[in-house]
């Protein structure tokens, strides 16, 4: 196994981690501020991808597609927040889980109703297609590099937004004491809608970005959603920093596990069996990681509250 291959795989791990971060950031923000667990976050990811594919194929512009993804996911998020989720903040997590499970059913079949059962097409923009040479002789997809950059920019932007702006202050205050901030005259209802729409827009962005290199189809959001859960459990719920570190950890563990486990087993069994056993265990590696983190730190790496 050459160092170039390993370096490339590390980049791949970072890239998948960065996309997971876009998903996990919205989830953790919504939980941190509103105390809401949202299973339908994966549906917003899907809405973003479909909006991007629809608009990009109509206009021929990937950029317009991205804008549409952000707008559609944010709008869908805001709508859902105002119509449904708002009534659930004070409820038990159980009700939230069920209501958002119901939303998944509605979103999935609704999207299928509108767009049909066939997967949609979304291509990467020509400016970002092909590969670039990185130092050390690594050939790497330009689009994936752009994904990593986008993710890092969004992470930085979120940090600045939360640490240094007025709305960020309200978000932090809201996370620690909801009654108090309402008493101070902040329009808490509007704040919640804005935060939810922001989280939804991030999920939509992730959906559109990923849609260009994968297939845009119904049900694409749920596997990512579950990975995002693993991320925020590892990182600590409510912590953006935790989501970032957790996402990178999960991305790297998954990618490197798939790279190293099959050859590891090939050392002491025949290659076909090693490929099956190795990939079976690789598919479980992130859950093992999660279990280890939980044993050591039950509230996640950066979780403040339990």
């Amino acid at each position: 196994m050459s160092p170039v291959l390993i370096a490339e795989q590390v980049l791949n791990g970072v890239q998948s981690g960065v996309v997971l971060f876009l998903m996990a950031a919205g989830l953790t923000l919504v939980f941190g501020v509103m105390g809401l667990i949202n299973l339908a976050h994966g549906s917003l990811f899907m809405v973003g991808a479909f909006a991007a594919a629809g608009v990009a194929s109509a206009t021929g512009s990937f950029l317009l597609g991205l804008v549409a993804a952000l707008a559609a996911a944010a709008a869908a998020g805001a709508l859902v927040e105002v119509l449904v989720l708002r009534r659930l903040y004070a409820r038990e997590h159980l009700d939230q889980v069920l209501a958002t499970f119901a939303l998944i059913l509605i979103f999935s079949e609704g999207v299928r109703w509108v767009f049909g059962s066939f997967p949609l097409f979304l291509d990467i923009p020509t400016a970002l297609s092909g590969t670039v040479s990185l130092p050390g002789g690594i050939l790497y997809s330009r689009y994936r590099l752009a994904l990593i950059a986008t993710g890092l920019v969004v992470a930085l932007g979120l940090y600045l937004l939360i640490a240094h702006t007025r709305i960020g202050m309200q978000v932090r205050a809201g996370a620690s004491d909801r009654e108090m901030i309402a008493a101070l005259g902040v329009d808490i209802g509007r704040l919640y809608t804005v935060v939810f729409a922001l989280g939804a827009a991030l999920a939509g962005l992730a959906g559109a970005l990923v849609g260009a290199i994968q297939s845009v189809q119904v049900g694409m959001g749920e596997p990512v959603l579950i990975l995002a859960f693993v991320v925020i459990v590892i990182g600590g719920i409510g912590s953006i920093k935790g989501a970032f570190i957790g996402a990178l950890l999960v991305g790297l563990t998954d990618t490197l596990g798939r790279l190293f486990l099959p050859p590891l087993f090939a050392l002491f069994m025949d290659s076909s069996a090693a490929a099956t056993v190795g990939s079976s265990l690789a598919s479980m590696s992130i859950y093992v990681l999660m279990a280890i983190v939980l044993v050591l730190k039950p509230s996640g790496l950066f979780g403040a509250r339990t």
């Binding site: 994936r144 994968q214 297939s215 990618t255 798939r258 099959p262 490929a275 690789a282 598919s283």
Partner: peptide, 11 residues
């Protein structure tokens, strides 16, 4: 062997 339902094949 890849994971069933896998969507990212960079590795």
């Amino acid at each position: 062997f890849t994971k069933l339902g896998q969507t990212d094949y960079a590795a």
